[in-house]
Every structure is written in structure tokens, then in C-alpha cells.
């Protein structure tokens, strides 16, 4: 009788173990199968252009059936960098305000607003970006900048654009920055609150002001957390599709100005995938494969960073 019960227990334990193992290994299987299928579909494009040549080819021509990753890749990297440059100071400011300055009743309101910002579907950002933000930027920031900095010698042309509509690498960076602010702000807020009170009190006890405590105690203490938050945001910015497809302009031409429309890997995929056949289709798979690898690398960097940070603190 007792033995029977024990056997039952052992069986359920084994089943439970198997289920958890199955669920966890499934994620790995899915990822590996994705990489394999992306790579497999890319083979014709790799054979035709060569991997390295493909990355450095600027051309994107249906007529000649020649496709190069240089512009979409550059667009992806530039919009992501632009977005992070704008988002990091804003997100850190928000996190500092929430944790150190803001009165309690406002804290929840602002925190919820930021979480909501992260929950908005990206196509809504795209629509808002295209119909509201892009014309607004064109009429204000772009106008002001091109009539001032734009008149300077040498660098001036980088702030002039012959394209109308306000869709540009600049607008895309702004939309993208709004989308990644919540990620950085939320992670920064969490790591800021982990700074021990006693450490902050020690700094106050030496005669530090609030700003000095934030600058020299809270920020260094949270460095690793904030860094991994930024890298996670970078991964998100690299892969963002719908919003960017709306506001980037989708133009395969030379980029002369921050106000020029351009292209990114994701927007090429979103726009061309439906109709692509043959080499073009394979090319799109190769672009997707490159993006996948880029995201994989950023994630790996984030992991290494946070692990190294942990061993530093011990």
C-alpha cells in the first residue's frame, strides 16, 4: 500500500520533471529551427552576392536584380543609435525623478504612464508618427534647424533636405526613442531603488546635495543595471518594425541629411516581403538572418555585462 503510494508520487514527479524540461527545451528548439530556416532560405542570396559583399553593397535594384544590405543595415544602426542618444538622458531623468524627487502621489501616476507607453502597439506609434509627428517636425524642428545650422558651410547640407513630408531618419529616431524610453526608465528605476539607503545617507552625511548623491552614488551603484537596460532597449530598437516602416520613408537612396527619408532592415522586410520572389525573397531572408544575429549579439553583450557587474560587486 505504502509502496504503491510512493510509486504514484515518483511517477507524478517524473511527469512534472519531464513537462518542465520539455517546455524549456522547446524554446531552444524553436530558436535553433528559426536560425536554420532563415539561413537555409538565405543560401541563394549568399551564393549570388557573397555574405561580405552583400553587406557592403549599396545598390537595391529590382530591375538589375541586385540587392545589397548596406543601406538597410546603416539605416537600422543609425535610427537605433539616434533613438538611444535621445532616450537615455530622458529615461534616466525620468527614473531619477521618480525615485529621488517626485512626491509619492505623482510617482504612481508617472510610473503607470510609462508602463502604458510600453504597452502601446507599435503600429499606433507608426500612425501617430506619420500623421502627427512627422508634419509637426517638418514644420518646426526641421524648419528651424535647416534655416540656421543648415546654412553653415561643410556641415550645413547634413541638415537640409529636398524631401517633403517630414518622414526621415530623424523622425524615425524620435519615434523609436519614445518607444524605448519605458524600457530604460523602468530598469533604471528598479536599479536606482536598489541603492542601499545607508549608502545614500552616508553621502548626505558628508554634506552631499541630492544631485551629488545621484551623480556619484546612485548612478555608479546602478551602472550595470542601467547598462543592461540600455542594451535591451538597443535590441528592441534594432528590431522595431511597424512604427519605423511608417515614418522612415522607405527610400533606397544615398543618405545626405538627417532629414532624408531612408530605409531599415525591418522596413524593407515589412514593405517587400509580400511581393518578393526568387533572389529578392532570398535576400530578404538574408537580411532577417543578419538582424537576428545582430539582436543575438546585443543580448549576449547585455548578459556578459550584467554577469561581469555582479562579479565586480562581490
Amino acid at each position: 500500500m505504502k509502496n504503491k503510494k510512493r510509486n504514484q508520487k515518483n511517477t507524478s514527479n517524473a511527469v512534472f520533471k519531464f513537462l518542465t524540461f520539455f517546455a524549456s527545451s522547446l524554446t531552444i528548439v524553436i530558436i535553433i529551427s528559426m536560425i536554420i530556416s532563415l539561413f537555409y532560405q538565405s543560401i541563394p542570396a549568399i551564393q549570388k552576392f557573397g555574405f561580405v559583399d552583400f553587406i557592403f553593397t549599396r545598390e537595391w535594384s529590382f530591375n538589375k536584380d541586385i540587392y545589397g544590405a548596406f543601406r538597410p543595415l546603416a539605416g537600422t544602426i543609425l535610427t537605433s543609435i539616434g533613438a538611444l542618444l535621445l532616450a537615455i538622458p530622458i529615461a534616466l531623468g525620468i527614473a531619477i525623478f521618480i525615485t529621488e524627487i517626485c512626491p509619492a502621489f505623482l510617482r504612481n501616476i508617472i510610473s503607470s504612464a510609462i508602463e502604458l507607453l510600453a504597452a502601446i502597439p507599435s503600429i499606433i506609434y507608426g500612425m501617430w508618427g506619420l500623421f502627427t509627428l512627422a508634419p509637426l517636425i517638418e514644420g518646426t524642428v526641421q524648419k528651424a534647424v535647416s534655416s540656421t545650422i543648415g546654412l553653415l558651410p561643410v556641415i550645413g547640407p547634413m541638415f537640409q533636405s529636398e524631401y517633403a513630408g517630414g518622414v526621415s531618419i530623424f523622425t524615425a529616431s524620435i519615434v523609436l526613442s519614445i518607444m524605448v524610453v519605458p524600457f530604460i526608465a523602468a530598469i533604471a528605476r528598479d536599479t536606482f531603488t536598489q541603492t542601499p539607503d545607508i549608502l545614500k545617507e552616508s553621502a548626505y552625511g558628508l554634506g552631499a546635495t541630492k544631485w551629488e548623491v545621484v551623480r556619484y552614488i546612485v548612478l555608479p551603484y546602478s551602472k550595470t543595471g542601467v547598462q543592461s537596460g540600455i542594451i535591451i532597449a538597443a535590441g528592441r530598437a534594432l528590431g522595431e518594425t511597424m512604427a519605423i516602416a511608417y515614418v522612415i520613408g522607405n527610400r533606397h537612396g544615398p543618405l545626405n541629411s538627417i532629414f532624408d527619408p531612408y530605409t531599415t532592415i525591418t522596413s524593407v522586410l515589412a514593405n517587400e516581403f509580400n511581393e518578393a520572389v526568387g533572389t529578392q525573397l532570398s535576400t530578404l531572408f538574408l537580411l532577417a538572418f543578419i538582424l537576428f544575429i545582430a539582436n543575438f549579439i546585443t543580448l549576449a553583450i547585455a548578459k556578459i555585462y550584467s554577469r561581469r557587474g555582479l562579479s565586480n560587486e562581490l
Partner: peptide, 20 residues
């Protein structure tokens, strides 16, 4: 209070070296 704390220092229950 900031100036006051320059003249009246404090040492806590646990050692609190800054992360530097």
C-alpha cells in the same frame, strides 16, 4: 543641512564605502 553635515559627520552601523 548640507553645510551642517560637513561639520557634523556620521558613521553608520554597517561600513558604507562608496562604489569607488
Amino acid at each position: 543641512a548640507t553645510q551642517l553635515r560637513e561639520q557634523i559627520g556620521m558613521v553608520f552601523q554597517k561600513p558604507t564605502p562608496f562604489p569607488m
